[in-house]
Simulated assay, not measured.
Amino acid sequence: MTRLTEIKYDKETKTYYFNHSGGFHPITKKRIQKKRKGIPILKDAKQLLKKIMIEVEEEKKTTFDLNMNFGKYAQKWFEDKTIRLRPSTIVNYREQFEYNIIPYLGKFKIKEINEAVLQEYVNRLARERNLSAATIRTAYGIVAEILKKVSKQSTFNYNVVNDVSRPVDNKIVRSWDEEDIRAFLNARNVLLNLTRNYIGLEIQIQTGIRMGEVLGLRWRDVNFEAKTITIRQTLAKINEKGSYGLVPEVKTHTSYRTISIPEMLCESLKNHKAMIEKEKRIVGNDYKNYDLIVCSKTGNWVHPNNYRRSFNVTRDALNLPKLRCHDLRHTHATFLIGILKFNPRIVQERLGHARITTTLKTYTHVLPAMDAEVSKKLDQSFGKV
Rank of each mutant, 00 (worst) to 15 (best):
M1R: 11
M1T: 15
M1G: 08
L4N: 13
I7Y: 01
K8N: 07
D10G: 05
T15A: 14
Y17M: 08
H20C: 07
F24Q: 05
T28M: 10
Q33F: 06
Q33W: 00
K35D: 09
I39Q: 00
D44M: 03
L48D: 01
I52G: 01
I52W: 02
M53D: 09
I54Q: 06
E57S: 07
K61G: 10
T63W: 04
T63L: 10
D65M: 00
F70C: 09
E79V: 08
K81M: 11
T82G: 03
R84M: 02
R86A: 12
V91F: 08
Q96I: 12
N100E: 14
P103N: 06
F108L: 12
K109N: 11
K111H: 08
A116I: 15
E120P: 05
A126V: 15
R127Y: 05
L131I: 01
T138L: 15
T138F: 15
A139T: 10
Y140N: 13
G141D: 06
V143D: 04
A144S: 13
E145D: 12
I146F: 12
K148T: 02
K148F: 06
K149E: 12
K152H: 09
S154R: 05
V160T: 11
P167H: 06
P167W: 04
K171A: 13
R174V: 09
R182W: 00
A183T: 15
A183G: 04
N186G: 04
L191N: 05
G200F: 06
Q204Y: 00
T207R: 01
I209M: 11
I209F: 05
E213T: 06
R218M: 13
R218E: 15
D221Y: 08
N223V: 05
E225I: 10
E225N: 12
A226S: 01
K227M: 12
L235G: 05
L235S: 03
A236P: 05
N239H: 10
E240P: 09
P248S: 08
K251A: 08
T252G: 01
S255N: 05
P262F: 10
M264T: 15
S268D: 13
K273D: 07
A274M: 10
E279I: 01
E279R: 15
R281T: 09
I282F: 04
G284T: 14
D286S: 07
Y287V: 02
K288M: 09
Y290D: 03
L292H: 07
C295N: 08
W301F: 15
H303S: 09
P304S: 07
R308K: 13
S310P: 13
V313F: 15
T314V: 11
D316H: 04
A317Q: 15
K322W: 01
K322R: 14
R324M: 14
R329H: 08
R329G: 10
R329Q: 07
H330Y: 09
H330T: 00
T331W: 03
T331A: 08
H332T: 02
A333Q: 07
L336Q: 10
I337T: 01
N343P: 05
N343E: 13
P344A: 04
V347T: 00
L351R: 02
H353A: 07
R355V: 04
L360R: 11
T364A: 14
A369E: 14
D371W: 07
A372F: 06
K376V: 02
K377A: 15
D379W: 13
K384C: 11
